[in-house]
């Protein structure tokens, strides 16, 4: 745990250096831009709300990808899973009879979304469990197929004429925004989905240690051969982890379709799948860690918009990659030192 914390700090330091270098290379003052970044994010109530809004999909995909990662699987297909699920949620949500109570509408729509996300992850899961196909390749392919499939479905008449968006949701299928409870967040898109996401992250983090399923999934990730010898159904656990990961990705629609737009349009939520990878690789099986990582990358995303007038916001994607690389690098270094020390003590 301490080593992990050290690695994270190294990663953040590297990210800061990269930020300064890139901003300076672009011909702006890093200190001024950092000031702008803070002003546009945590500086105001609205900015804070927007950070939380951006962090919600990242948190949900982060939890989802982390779950697969515990089992040793890289779910790079979050992008496609959440897109397909969002479309499914919007299609069902918009066809509910007007006046359906939120008590039925919300669970139904979320269930559909989770089901669709899980279904999209089913293909890589089966390919992996049955045929040993590497999930990195198959999930990427499923992302591409999702893009085309969504275009196809929207083109078949599920989109409003001349647009790439679906009809609006029935009133009962909306997730309420937080501004209804905290008036100072007025205007920002953050919704109750954030609260649900935090609860889910803490629950999933807890279940790795405290439930049989979670324990088995993380043990399979550590040593599948030993787990097989202990009669844990390894392939089945791998498939379950990936499908469950897809289902959680489907819940991203609660923040985007149900909590913000009120309909699905092509590209809604895009990018959260890859941002979630960064969150998962930083949070690593720890609920609180996942929440903090989502806040960090949410801040970077919102901050990117705040500084876009001075420095291209694409800078933040680079920073995201730098954070992952340097955390992984620091982690490997720390591990090497620990190994060497252990060898010195016992060898």
């Amino acid at each position: 745990m301490k080593a992990g914390l050290l690695a994270t700090i190294c990663g953040l330091a590297a990210a800061w250096i990269a930020f300064c270098l890139l901003v300076w290379g672009f011909g702006e003052s890093p200190r001024e831009i950092a000031g702008q970044l803070f002003e546009g994010t945590w500086g105001t109530a609205y900015g804070t709300g927007q950070v939380l809004f951006k962090a919600t999909p990242l948190l949900l995909t982060g939890v989802a990808i982390d779950l697969a990662l515990r089992a040793g699987l890289f779910n790079i297909g979050a992008e496609g899973q959440l897109a397909v699920a969002s479309l499914a949620a919007a299609m069902v949500g918009s066809h509910l009879p007007e006046g359906t109570s939120a008590l039925y509408a919300l669970p139904l729509v979320l269930l559909v979304a989770a089901f669709a996300g899980g279904l999209w992850a089913l293909v890589p899961a089966v390919l992996r469990a049955r045929f040993g196909a590497h999930e990195v390749i198959s999930t990427i392919m499923m992302n591409r197929i999702a893009d085309a499939a969504i275009g196809l479905v929207l083109g078949l008449g599920f989109a409003l004429k001349g647009t790439v968006r679906t009809q609006g949701l029935a009133a009962g299928a909306h997730v309420p925004r937080l501004e209804r409870f905290l008036p100072s967040l007025r205007g920002s898109g953050v919704s109750v989905a954030l609260v649900a996401g935090v609860v889910l992250a803490l629950f999933v983090g807890w279940s790795y240690r405290r439930t049989r399923f979670g324990r088995e999934v993380s043990l399979v990730g550590m040593n599948p051969i030993a787990c097989g010898a202990e009669r844990i159904p390894v392939r089945w656990r791998l498939a379950q982890a990936l499908i469950l990961s897809g289902a959680i990705c489907g819940l991203v629609s609660s923040a985007t379709v149900l909590g913000y737009k009120g309909y699905f349009e092509q590209g809604l939520g895009a990018g959260a799948g890859f941002g979630g990878l960064a969150v998962a690789l930083l949070g690593r099986g720890n609920g609180v860690g996942l929440v903090l990582a989502a806040l960090l990358f949410g801040t970077l995303q919102q901050g990117g918009l705040a500084i876009n007038a001075y420095v291209p916001m694409e800078l933040m994607d680079v920073i995201q990659g730098v954070v992952i690389t340097s955390v992984a690098l620091a982690d490997a270094r720390v591990r090497a030192v620990v190994m060497r020390t252990a060898k010195g003590a016992f060898g």
């Binding site: 890859f274 990878l277 694409e314 994607d317 680079v318 990659g321 490997a332």
Partner: peptide, 22 residues
Amino acid sequence: ERVDAIVSGIALNLVAAGGTRF
């Protein structure tokens, strides 16, 4: 450095995708 090859690949792909747009 013995970083996990998939992690390194994912991170470098992110840097490349964002960096080229930057």
